[in-house]
Nucleic acid binder design. Structure first.
Length: 471
RNA sequence: GCCCCGGUGGUGUAGCCCGGUCAAGCAUGUUACCCUCUCGAGGUAGCGACGCGAGUUCAAAUCUCGCCCGGGGCACCA
């Protein structure tokens, strides 16, 4: 790639940003960095019926969170005059015409491969209608501007596709200033030219041929187009069709529910941006159809989290444990087994809480160890377990359990799973709640902090008393 | 139906353009063990794949043809 390169992130602000966007954007960003190019964030907002203000913000937020830096930002809706210019040029060239056939007829003729009478409308008449369209003299649905392609082409998208249509609904950014809106192909061709885009890296659900014809007709530069197949996650379709009902019926807590494939959802779950970047790098981008398993992303995420996450004790399903002959102690426990991340001091006497499940595995007379503290011999199993102090020495083959004292905090941990089962069926087991006690030091955490609860997992502090398990 | 594009272990990929070094590498997963006062991280070992069939060739995951399977497109969406 010699010379100046240009890349773009072209979201349509018609929904929240998803992992799919994040990965596609990451690919573009990586290329831009490698070739020292310019990167555009360009909102493809040419359909006022779909676009909403809050979605622009979702993308800006998500992109910033990912650490992607764009050199420029713009909205296609800001460039309507330029796109109109190209539209008019196409008409003047005889490459586009105004058509007043109704939608059904256009479809039928396109299927049959026969042109309609408007195809041969004289230039002057086309230009007259064009000016009238700009002056908003026609009602929605009355006219479209079509590209003069090839009505016989085996590729149906070349059979005189629509370039402009009238949409009377106000646009969230431009209000009712424009009613004649370009469709995707023309808008993209013009914008890519204006932005100096040289490389288009995008997923494969976009057709390419028409845009190439338009670019040629308008004497635009050639583009390098690289396509990759869509990013699908097992059990978590990115499709709005499937996700929207879940939000509307309140089956999930919102678009940022930790089970959702949205960027907000991943962030809440405790996936870090670097993990998404590395994941994208590793799974690459191929034309092969694939269905990613969450385990790879989660594994990368754990490796990133491990060296930077404090260890704190969390006891799920807690049961009280009285320890006889327990010495009063004041222990200083470090937050991390290898890194120096500071420590906290805990005072212990003879009263603890440990996980009922852990204790179940120790018979009467058996010995286990309270992690980082001392050994305990079980003197009474059952519903009201008791034990007695059994020395400090670290014994081989002794189970070690995390514990808390009276000074603890009741918390709930949400454990997210896959949203859908085979065949797009909602998985009503996709969310589990685990209740338990966390040691007092959790009160010093801030929302967004990610810690590791040893023998449980990495968890993100979501709100007071509430954590979300990362995986 | 028509037009593109794909098919390597459970999952994701490398290799395919320029055939041999591929009895197929890496990661994830899983099993066992080591390490660790965690069921995390780290380490070692094992498990597991070239869609099918022909052809070309001394030699094919790699080239050719046919078949099968999957995805996308065929909007007054992007």
């Amino acid at each position: 790639m010699a010379g100046k390169t240009g890349f773009r992130l072209p979201p349509e602000p018609s929904g929240y940003m998803t992992v799919g966007h994040a990965m596609a954007f990451t690919i573009n960003y990586l290329y831009k960095e490698q070739y020292d190019g310019e990167l555009w964030l360009r909102f493809e907002d040419t359909n006022p019926r779909k676009v909403q203000q809050r979605y622009y913000e979702s993308f800006r937020r998500g992109i910033a969170w990912l650490g992607i830096k764009c050199d420029h930002e713009k909205n296609v809706s800001d460039d309507m005059e330029a796109i109109y210019g190209s539209g008019k040029e196409l008409i003047e060239q005889g490459n586009a015409y105004a058509c007043s056939c109704d939608e059904a007829k256009v479809k039928r003729l396109r299927f049959d491969g026969t042109p309609c009478e408007h195809r041969d409308t004289p230039l002057e008449a086309n230009l007259r209608v064009w000016e009238e369209l700009l002056a908003k003299k026609h009602k929605e649905g009355s006219y479209v501007i079509r590209f003069k392609g090839d009505m016989q082409s085996p590729n149906y998208s070349l059979r005189d596709t629509n370039l402009f249509r009238i949409i009377s609904q106000p646009h969230p950014l431009t209000g009712d200033r424009y009613t004649l809106w370009p469709t995707y192909d023309l808008a993209n061709a013009v914008e890519d030219e204006m932005c100096g885009i040289t490389h288009v890296l995008r997923s494969s659900e976009f057709r390419n041929e028409l845009q190439q014809l338009l670019r040629d007709a308008l004497r635009f530069r050639k583009l390098e187009v690289i396509q990759f197949s869509r990013f699908n996650f097992k059990g978590t379709p990115v499709s709005k069709r499937l996700l929207r009902p879940l939000v509307e019926k309140k089956v999930v807590s919102g678009w940022d529910d930790p089970r959702m494939p949205t960027v907000d959802g991943l962030r809440r779950r405790g996936i870090v941006p670097e993990a998404i970047r590395e994941f994208t790098l590793q799974v690459g981008y191929t034309k092969t159809e694939h269905e990613y398993d969450w385990s790879l992303l989660l594994s990368l995420n754990r490796k990133l989290l491990d060296p930077v996450s404090k260890r704190l004790f969390f006891v799920p399903d807690p049961t009280p444990l009285e320890v006889d002959d327990a010495p009063k102690k004041e222990v200083d426990l470090s937050f991390h087994p290898q890194k120096d991340m500071g420590s906290r001091v805990i005072e212990t006497a003879g009263e603890f809480f440990v996980s009922a499940g852990d204790l179940k595995g120790i018979p009467e007379g058996g010995v286990f160890r309270l992690m980082d503290l001392y050994n305990v011999q079980v003197t009474s199993a059952g519903p009201r377990p008791k034990g007695k102090y059994a020395g400090e020495e670290l014994l081989a083959n002794t189970r070690k359990f995390q514990w808390v004292t009276k000074e603890h905090q009741q918390i709930q941990v949400t454990v997210p799973g896959e949203l859908f089962l085979e065949g797009d069926v909602y998985n009503d087991q996709s969310l589990k709640e685990v209740n338990g006690y966390a040691e007092a030091a959790v009160s010093a955490l801030k929302v967004g902090d990610i810690v590791q609860f040893p023998r449980f997992g990495f968890c993100r502090y979501d709100s007071p008393g509430h954590f979300i398990m990362t995986g």
